[in-house]
Amino acid sequence: MSGEDCDPMDRGENDGQKPDKMFTLKKWNAVAMWSWDVECDTCAICRVQVMDACLRCQGESKKDSYGKQDCVVVWGECNHSFHFCCMSLWVKQNNRCPLCQQEWSIQRMGK
């Protein structure tokens, strides 16, 4: 790296007088993190973080699911959320939310 790599066109633009703008913001390299918009990070059925695949999906360790989040989250009308896999099995036995005992009905699915 040398000091000679500056753009010659940039030079001489300023003459020591204080300009109206001190800086130009050329570019922003942002980093953000997404997570499911849930009240509780953990699935109450399998006790695994909802950002991770559920315990059963991890057990199967599907070879084709390289980081793909195919084990998504589901929200009930009661706003409680679980792994979709976990809830699908749960409702076969008991069609109520395991946390609040309300009748289970899907409000939305994660995508």
Binding site: A30, M33, W36, M109, G110
Partner: peptide
């Protein structure tokens, strides 16, 4: 859908 974004 259903995602929350946070700036790092």
């Amino acid at each position: 859908n259903g995602r929350r974004l946070a700036w790092l």
